[in-house]
Design a protein around this nucleic acid. Structure first.
Length: 452
RNA sequence: GGCGGCGUGGCCGAGUGGUUUAGGCAAGGGCCUGCAAAGCCCUGUACCCGGGUUCGAUUCCCGGCGCCGCCUCCA
């Protein structure tokens, strides 16, 4: 049973399915106005890993992750680039899924778009106004945070200390600086939807509360997102549900930010590493491994070296994959080692302890290689299979080598013949030719192995 | 100012009151190999500083120093 640290209470406790047996997981998705960066990559990988593990553990997961397709930032890009806001959103979303596919991230079961839920959002805002926790002004509708019991739960701060630290621009329109917009009335030429309080668009915090409750129902299991969304975004989502008396997420998790050098990577600092570029340069699994090697709640330093190191690690894993195939061909039939799987589960269940889980798996890799070196085939196969099951759950299944051309296979055959006849000069020449063609050459009991 | 986190061996990064004590990468030495590759083995006296608690602290407490994040859009 997976136990997770709940950032609302600070307790580590089991993630519980509801009566239906289903675990509702809501993760804040992208605002589609530009290409994704490696921080988005980490975020989606963390929840992808969580979901894969839950499903492998036999849980039924309903993974919902939204796309914010109407927002000030989208409008700004549209204006600057003289495109329609729809065009900006659709284009950026395509780019997003393309990158996610390349990372092997499973699509969420449901991907709601903000623009598909405007009537529901209008209704929620209207209910908040009716309940007198929200008020209308010339510019929009705001939630009066002071009227929400327990505001500050996620921030772990009292309302007073939040007030003291507020650095939001002074807005004469609002009653209090901490109040936030539920509905933004449209200015001329801005996209808008009709509402009783005047045409406009929803505030960001309203989107997520409406869509999560609409798709997962009151009291859904888990809400996740980046550390930077804890406050105010998640706090404000929660505030709306609380103000309406609706049970919201029962468990919250937040993942740590990416550090480049010594500081957080963020758009406002301009130190962005484009995810697509990174995926072009490295094995897409390498970044997933980097993410797994750090704990999800910790900040994580990322640089080229780390990703390249991870690529090397993976080539060792792939090598074991090849040995396993061969051993299986030679009759190795042992099932995955239960010890390895138990160790893996134990680590994963402890607040998604992927660094230790991965360590357990690599230890099994080493032991599998030892056993195979010693020709203890069944032991080796069992350990190797155990490791592979774990890596597969984490989305790191070994990849087969790329196509090897017929001419390369011919060179390999000639090399084997040369070696058999003791003509090592010829054999080494043939190996050099293969290397020059971009292949790697390994000797195995069954002859030359050629791979890309 | 408020809140939270971090400081571990060449690098990254887990973890723990003591004993065998991650894991990955890199380096040096070795085994294997016709030579390589792949694989395996060994090596490097790791826990920011100062106090305290303790039979014993890297791990707990207190105080420093340094760094990061949130309190504004942000994964």
């Amino acid at each position: 049973m997976l136990r997770l640290l709940d950032t609302a209470t600070g307790e580590t406790r089991p993630l519980e399915a509801r009566e239906s047996g289903e675990i509702g997981l809501y993760v804040c998705g992208p605002t589609v106005y530009g290409p994704p960066h490696i921080g988005h990559g980490r975020a989606t990988l963390v929840y992808d890993i969580l979901r894969r593990y839950l499903e492998w553990s036999g849980q039924v997961v309903r993974h919902v992750s939204n796309v914010t397709d109407i927002d000030d930032k989208i409008i700004n890009v549209a204006v600057t680039e003289k495109r329609s806001w729809q065009d900006v959103a659709v284009g950026a979303e395509d780019t997003w899924w393309d990158a996610m596919d390349r990372m092997g991230v499973l699509r969420p079961h449901v991907v709601p778009h903000a623009t598909e839920y405007i009537p529901e959002m209008v209704e929620l805002v209207a209910r908040l106004v009716e309940a007198e926790v929200a008020y209308e002004t010339a510019e929009g509708v705001y939630l009066s945070v002071a009227n929400v019991p327990g505001y500050g739960l996620l921030a772990h701060q009292s309302l007073d200390s939040l007030r003291a630290g507020a650095r939001v621009e002074v807005n004469e329109d609002k009653r209090a600086p901490v109040d936030f917009a539920l509905w933004k009335k449209a200015k001329p030429d801005e996209p808008s939807w009709p509402a009783p309080f005047g045409p406009g668009r929803p505030g960001w915090h309203t989107e997520c509360v409406v869509m999560s409750l609409a798709l997962l129902g009151d009291g859904f299991a888990l809400h996740g997102g980046g550390e930077d969304l804890k406050f105010p975004h998640h706090e404000n989502e929660r505030a709306q549900a609380v103000a309406l008396g609706q049970p919201f997420a029962r468990h919250w998790i937040h993942h740590g930010m990416i550090l480049l050098g010594q500081e957080k990577m963020s758009k406002s600092l301009g130190n962005i590493v484009d995810l697509r570029r990174m995926l072009e340069v490295h094995d897409p699994r390498a970044y997933r491994l980097v993410v797994l090697q750090g704990h999800y709640r910790e900040q994580m330093k990322v640089d080229e070296t780390r990703i390249a190191d991870a690529s090397r690690t993976l080539s060792g894993l792939d090598a074991l994959g090849r040995r396993l195939e061969e051993a299986a061909r030679d009759g190795g039939s042992a099932p995955p080692s239960p010890d390895v799987l138990d160790g893996f589960k134990e680590q994963m269940d402890a607040d998604l302890g992927t660094p230790r889980a991965v360590a357990t798996l690599f230890d099994a890799v080493r032991r599998a290689n030892i056993a195979l070196d010693r020709r203890e085939t069944e032991v080796g196969v069992s350990l190797a299979r155990g490791a592979m099951v774990g890596f597969d759950v984490l989305g790191l299944a070994p990849v087969g080598s790329a196509e090897v051309s017929d001419s390369a296979l011919e060179l390999a055959r000639r090399r084997d013949a040369a070696r058999a006849s003791g003509d090592y000069a010829a054999a080494d020449g043939l190996r050099d030719e293969l290397v020059a063609l971009g292949y790697r050459v390994e000797d195995t009991p069954s002859g030359t192995r050629v791979l890309r």
